[in-house]
């Protein structure tokens, strides 16, 4: 059993008891963290493990939310409505990802990021224009339907279903990172020219990574649409695309658990500081500045780095002229 799997088991174990201790922590809050946590993991698959900066992730989150929501509003009563609408949402996000990624991948660095941004603005524009997305109002009162006969309108049932969906999605991302494909992605991130010279079509790897990342972001978006029973323009907005960058960097880019922790922190601050209104964004901004100034690897990244340094001091290594690595170190497998 891998360490990741063990930690996921512990987290799921803790989450299982949440509905039994009312007042300690709200199940709705935990569900929100799970949705955004998975969203950030999807983003991290690109930034941390492929080396691509995307400003289009809200477009994937939102388009899946809209598709799942609109289908549930029409076919929510059907016994297979929920799984079908969920799958359709994920597929829609993957297709949007294929379109945006396919166009952007021809460019490098900042140009890549700017193209994803421009294309995601088109998705936003379409969400405002289309009738089926509800325009300015978005989709409200989305029915949750049922899954395998379980009525999801109960918050407790929805909570456990969300937990299962989250665990599956999280372990999927972990598998992609630790797969033969994930190895090549890391090689592309580390040194694209070298990966090409070994015979790998790096653009194809980046495109597939982009589609997988978009699909997982869509998976989180479909979850979110069902949990909150609403989808709004905020879900496809640039604000959401930048928030996921912040969550990922805060928790630790290129680590497995960092994005989840970052999402937990940001969502937590937003919830518990809601009383100070718009000042929340200032507080989060300040935390972000402190983080990138003093803990460039993010919280989980710094932790892993310290642990590795300690381990190295215990075991003298047969290497000479050790050089400092300039980029955040990837989490050990």
């Amino acid at each position: 059993m891998s360490n990741t799997f063990k930690i996921v088991l512990v987290l799921v174990g803790l989450a299982l008891v949440v509905p039994f201790v009312p007042g300690l922590i709200y199940p709705v809050f935990v569900m929100k963290v799970m949705c955004y946590g998975l969203f950030a993991c999807a983003f991290n698959l690109l930034l941390g493990f492929t080396g691509l900066v995307s400003f289009a992730h809200a477009a994937f989150l939102g388009s899946a939310g809209y598709v799942t929501g609109a289908l549930m509003i029409r076919f929510g009563n059907h016994p297979l409505g929920m799984p079908a609408a969920f799958a359709a949402g994920v597929a829609a996000a993957a297709l949007v990802g294929l379109a945006i990624g396919g166009l952007a991948i021809r460019r490098r660095g900042i140009y890549f990021a700017m193209i994803t941004l421009a294309l995601s603005q088109i998705v936003y524009f379409l969400a405002v224009q289309f009738r089926w997305t509800g325009g300015e109002d978005g989709l409200q009162g989305i029915p949750r339907g049922s899954l395998f006969g379980l009525d999801l309108s109960s918050d407790t049932v929805m909570y456990y279903v969300t937990l299962a969906l989250f665990a599956a999605g999280f372990l999927f991302v972990d598998r992609v990172v630790h797969s033969p494909f994930g190895q090549i992605l890391q090689a592309v991130r580390d040194n694209e020219a070298r990966a090409t010279s070994l015979g790998y079509d790096t653009d194809r790897f980046k495109r597939l990574a982009f589609v997988i990342s978009a699909a997982v972001a869509g998976y989180a978006g479909a979850m979110k649409a069902l949990v909150f029973q609403l989808v709004s323009l905020n879900d496809v907005s640039l604000h959401t695309s930048t928030e996921v960058v912040l969550m990922t960097l805060l928790g630790g880019v290129g680590t497995i658990f960092g994005p989840l922790l970052g999402a937990g922190l940001v969502v937590g601050l937003q919830n518990y500081l809601a009383t100070i209104g718009d000042l929340v964004t200032v507080v989060i901004g300040l935390i972000f500045i402190v983080c990138v100034s003093f803990f460039r690897r993010g919280i989980v990244g710094e932790f892993l780095h310290l642990r590795r340094r300690r381990a190295e001091r215990h075991k003298r290594r047969p290497v000479r002229n050790a050089t400092r690595d300039p980029a955040p170190a990837a989490e050990a497998a």
Binding site: R175, V176, H178, S179, P180, F181, G182, Q183, I184, Y200, R204, F205, L208, I212, A333
Partner: peptide, 10 residues
Amino acid sequence: GTQYAFWRSI
């Protein structure tokens, strides 16, 4: 030939 196998274990 498994370089695209994202579902396989490392």
